[in-house]
Amino acid sequence: MTAAEEEWGRLMVAAQQGNAGAYRRLLDELRKWLCRFYARRLPPAMVEDAVQDTLIAIHEKRHTYDSERPFKPWLAAVARYKWIDRLRSMGRATMEELPDDIAIEDHESSVTSSVILTQLMTKLKPAQAEAIRLVKIEGFSVEEASARTGQSGSLIKVNIHRGLARLATIVQKQPDVE
């Protein structure tokens, strides 16, 4: 356990006792950690949302942290739980069309930085992985993805849905990463 993580544990204990200053410092640090955590696991457009969602979850469940145990596994378990949730909901939510000017900056590196997600996708059937990569990560519409892959539009949707469900299952069965 690094010194920083021990410090997080101490800050959380102070927060549990009602110390708002300690809590704010903790959340600021966790935010950075969570950004890195999700940047490797989710498409860039979803990272900010996932971070906020997890911060809220941490807030609502902060009484479940046991001060006698290390903080990091607690944090990682919450983050991972919310990640699985996200993977599932990626299938349900229809992606909003983004205005063209948003994705320009740093697009390439953000896309390639979802390393863990990309690795996981190698465990899917190629057609599923392709559909998810095009529509959910690179932001093509279903029609465009259909034209590029030769899968019909409804097949693209089915493959996304099944692939994401499968991803969530794979992740759940894996031992904690990080």
Binding site: Q16, L27, Q52, I56
Partner: peptide, 17 residues
């Protein structure tokens, strides 16, 4: 996210041991 953090840490209530 900064605003969210400020909001969450405002009026922080202690939690029961």
């Amino acid at each position: 996210t900064e605003v969210l953090i400020v909001e969450l840490s405002r009026n922080l209530q202690p939690v029961p041991l």
